[in-house]
Design a protein around this nucleic acid. Structure first.
Length: 477
RNA sequence: GGCCCGUUGGUCAAGAGGUUAAGACACGGCCCUUUCACGGCUGAGACAUGGGUUCGAUUCCCGUACGGGUCACCA
């Protein structure tokens, strides 16, 4: 049974790279009918943010990820909050000491600092305490001299296989005798991770490739315990640009931010899954269930991917277009109400116009701002090469159509379109020579989400005629 | 600096020892059209670099350049 875990720190923010990792973990587990576990890594009190755990739950839920085990849903391998698991780590560290795979170290911070002072970074611990006699150790312990427990790195080379990067071999020379238990009795992250993953029966470890270099150390730990090594899947980061990762520090968009900007959870999930992973088929729009179905580790990329907001925007537009109208209306209603103060405007009809033209609902207001108020516009807007209209002849065309519309009895789209086209025909004009000036006079914009006759219907007869005469004023100025 | 990893159009990416090196976003053009959008068609645009191996390498190997990661009593 495949078991994967998502192990975020509750720092109050779910960034896109993290969420993507969670998705991959979820897909890999679910594809194989396995379990996806949530474990909260809250040992860093400095960075702990109140309410952050809720953000994690909320994010997973909104994204459509359901964890099988976790602090809120329980499970057989709890507790699922790292700070509640503290007791065990020391026990395991001492087991290693017993086996000669780890040792007490009483070196002071000062001594270690001094050790590093001379050389560049990368100076290893000199194993000063490795040679301490049993008596010395016991005496130190008796006297409550602060200590840490360090892993004793063996000589040789360590090779591990990563599902994405393949075989990686590192000379153990390059590794330091890392600290397992800190002087406050707490485990270091690396140690806690190995213990937790083993105790929780995690079979596949999926994480950022910044851990690629420390993976050999993990392996050495597993080997020291005689535990089975999990399958490793390291993934390249999601970048903001060629050089920088997408990060909280840079104030980059988080999942929450993207939602606030009007992106649909499904679109975000779909898009970020495709950042660093590609399916076998040549297709881009997938539901989360489809992703579970087709997700294959082999499609994971080795190199970083730059987050492209433009493409997310496009994809969101695709989701909106594919959306059921009622769902779209529900989503857009409040935006529409806010953007249109004029009484009597048919919001549903506006929603229909706008649906295939926006990528997020927040693009709606700018598109329809002319409804409440005709914007100031320049008469050059009347000039359109293809329609064969300009500032001069548009005046004639408007004068021609106003009386016709005044007389119009049926104020519906088909009738109005018919009457305008007929007028053009009767006067030997192109359709556009009537339609373009009308559209312009009614909207004061170069583009609108609908045509001239639809604008007439939308605005109503009175407002239509009012704006048309305003058009004449502008043209005669 | 040591070690590890990476490098296909502007971006996401497929791909394979022999291909006209897919596709998508963005961009240009055309068609459709009641403006725009949608839709359809189309154009431009890429294998970082030098050596090998090979009949043939963008694909395999080595080096170089560039980029990233990592070397904590942080997670």
């Amino acid at each position: 049974m495949i078991r994967t875990r998502f192990a975020p720190s509750p720092t109050g923010y779910m960034h896109i790279g993290n969420l993507r990792t969670a998705l991959y973990e979820y897909f890999i587990a679910k594809h194989a009918g396995g379990k996806f576990i949530l474990r909260i890594e809250d040992t860093d009190r400095e960075r702990y943010v109140d309410g952050a755990v809720d953000i994690i739950y909320k994010t997973l839920e909104t994204a459509g990820i359901k964890h099988d085990e976790g602090p809120d849903v329980g499970g057989d391998y709890g507790p699922y909050v790292q700070s509640e698991r503290q007791n065990d780590y020391m026990k395991y560290a001492l087991m290693l000491v017993e086996k000669g795979e780890a040792y007490y170290c009483f070196c002071t911070k000062e001594r270690l600092d001094k050790l590093r002072e001379d050389g560049d970074t990368g100076v290893k611990y000199d194993r000063h305490c490795l040679s301490l006699s049993k008596e010395e150790i016991e005496e130190n312990l008796r006297n409550n001299v602060p200590f840490v427990i360090r892993q004793k790195i063996r000589e040789g080379k360590t090779t591990f296989v990563d599902e994405v990067y393949g075989e990686v071999t590192v000379d153990n020379e390059d590794m330091e005798d890392q600290i397992l238990i800190k002087s406050d009795g707490m485990p270091t992250y690396n140690f806690a991770n190995v213990i937790d993953d083993h105790l929780m029966n995690i079979t596949h470890v999926i994480r950022g490739n910044e851990y690629l270099s420390s993976t050999p150390k993990y392996n050495l730990l597993y080997e020291a315990f005689g535990w089975e090594i999990p399958t490793y899947i390291h993934v390249a980061p999601v970048m903001k640009d060629k050089h920088e990762k997408l990060s909280k520090r840079n104030g980059d968009a988080s999942f929450q931010d993207l939602l606030k900007k009007g992106y649909l959870p499904e679109a975000i999930v779909n898009y970020i899954t495709l950042l660093g992973w590609a399916p076998k088929e040549n297709r881009e729009i997938f539901t989360i269930d489809e992703l579970i179905e087709i997700f294959d580790i082999k499609g994971i990329s080795k190199s970083p991917a730059i987050f492209d907001p433009e493409k997310l925007r496009w994809m969101n537009g695709e989701y909106i277009k594919a959306m059921d109208f009622e769902d779209f209306y529900k989503m857009a209603e409040s935006v529409l109400k806010n953007a249109i103060k004029t009484e009597g405007i048919d919001l549903r009809s506006v929603a229909g116009m706008v649906k295939s033209r926006v990528c997020t609902v927040y693009e709606i207001p700018e598109m329809i701002d002319f409804i409440d108020e005709l914007p100031d516009y320049d008469k050059s807007l009347y000039k359109h090469k293809k329609m064969k209209t300009n500032e001069e002849n548009s005046l004639d065309f408007l004068r021609l159509i106003i009386p016709v519309l005044e007389k119009a009895e049926n104020w519906d789209n088909d009738s109005l379109y018919e009457v305008m086209v007929q007028t053009a025909k009767d006067n030997g004009l192109k359709n556009g020579q009537i339609l373009w000036p009308v559209r312009t006079a009614l909207s004061g914009k170069p583009t609108t989400p609908c045509g001239a006759s639809e604008l007439c219907v939308l605005l109503g007869k009175e407002e239509t005629l009012k704006r048309l005469s305003e058009g004449i004023e502008i043209l005669t100025k």
